[in-house]
């Protein structure tokens, strides 16, 4: 196990109250594995990702749990060690490629900065390595691009640069937070292919985050389904598509017209709205939208339990459903 997360919880302490963006999440990622985290917009996926490198912006913070990365607990590390993990052990790609690049530095400056930090390369070597990385991520004429500013690149190119930066520390785990959401449909497949290629090449594990279960189907070996603050089902991709157990997963799948197509669509198939974090329904938070739930579901949130070979689900009716 490369990454083992146990009972992770991250809250935001707002004037209006405690916002439990992530509330007791447990999962693991194996070496060289691709795992997907899916769920509707706003359900807490990005906060999970940021928790993994202990970078929740105030007024939020990780309030409990353990994050074992390579056997060491990330939440109890000294800051020096933690900085090694950030960018070194775990690389991260953010949702908005345009916003994640510093607008006033050239692409070259931004990559070589990370190379020099994590690989202790000299100025010249870093320059060379950067050009190589840019080439590898599919950027044409990388030498020229080194001197370009982010705003001079298209969204797809910016995302490639971000991927290059993320892998320049040779991470064992790459967290890709909605790497394709902000991009044109035509570019999305290219980026996913690139990620698959790089995983092969460098032997990284990838945690792929998306609100679109169709997008991750081709790439991920396992899928974790998230509903506000909680993971409700984990299964191998094939099993999940063939036999979804959680009512929410079922709804998600039925709203995907065909695999790999139709992005950025809201979940038309599921009646009701994503609940308000500050005013969550009691018990199983899905019950107002659930078709098979009954009064027994409204008192406690169902625990995420094993329901078969390599699969877990958090629903009282999982076996019978």
């Amino acid at each position: 196990m490369l990454l083992n997360v146990q009972d992770l919880a991250s809250y935001f302490f707002l004037d209006e109250g405690e916002l439990k963006a992530v509330d007791g999440v447990s999962f693991h990622v194996d070496v060289k594995e691709t795992v997907a985290l899916v769920g509707e917009s706003g359900c807490g996926k990005t906060i999970v990702a940021l928790s993994l490198i202990n970078l929740i912006p105030p007024p939020g913070r990780v309030v409990r749990g353990r994050i074992l990365f390579d056997g060491r607990d990330l939440l109890r590390m000294e800051s020096d060690e933690l900085r090694q993990v950030r960018g070194g052990g775990i690389g991260m790609i953010f949702q908005e490629p345009g916003a994640a690049l510093n607008p006033i530095y050239t692409i070259g400056d931004q990559i070589t900065g990370v190379l020099r930090l994590h690989r202790s390369l000299g100025k010249h070597q870093a320059q060379k390595a950067a050009i190589e990385l840019l080439g590898e991520t599919g950027i044409p004429e990388p030498e020229k691009r080194m001197n370009a500013y982010p705003f001079e690149l298209s969204g797809g190119m910016q995302q490639r640069v971000l991927i290059a930066i993320a892998i320049s520390g040779r991470p064992k785990l790459l967290i890709a937070d909605e790497p394709t959401t902000a991009l044109d449909v035509t570019v999305q497949a290219d980026i996913l292919d690139l990620l698959a290629y790089l995983q092969e090449q460098y032997g990284m594990a990838i945690l792929l985050i998306s609100h679109d279960i169709g997008v991750v189907a081709d790439v991920a070996e396992r899928i974790m389904v998230m509903y506000p603050g909680k993971i409700v089902e984990i299964a191998d991709t094939e099993d999940l598509f063939r036999d979804p157990r959680h009512p929410y997963t079922k709804a998600l799948l039925s709203s995907v017209p065909r695999l790999g197509v139709g992005h950025n669509e809201p979940l038309k198939g599921i009646p009701g709205a994503v609940p308000d974090f500050l005013d969550l329904p009691s018990g199983c938070t899905f019950h107002p939208r659930c078709t098979i739930g009954d009064s027994s579901c409204t008192s406690e949130f169902p625990p995420l339990v094993d329901i078969g070979y390599r699969r877990k689900c958090a629903c009282y009716k999982a076996e019978t459903g």
Binding site: R86, F94, A100, L101, N102, P103, G113, L117
Partner: peptide, 27 residues
């Protein structure tokens, strides 16, 4: 400091001092 590129810089493991002086301040 609330911009995503500052968060990104932190996620890449830069020291807080570097993040503020090099990545945020100039902007």
């Amino acid at each position: 400091l609330n911009e995503e590129y500052v968060l990104s810089a932190r996620a890449r493991g830069f020291r807080e001092r570097v993040v503020i002086l090099n990545h945020a301040l100039r902007n």
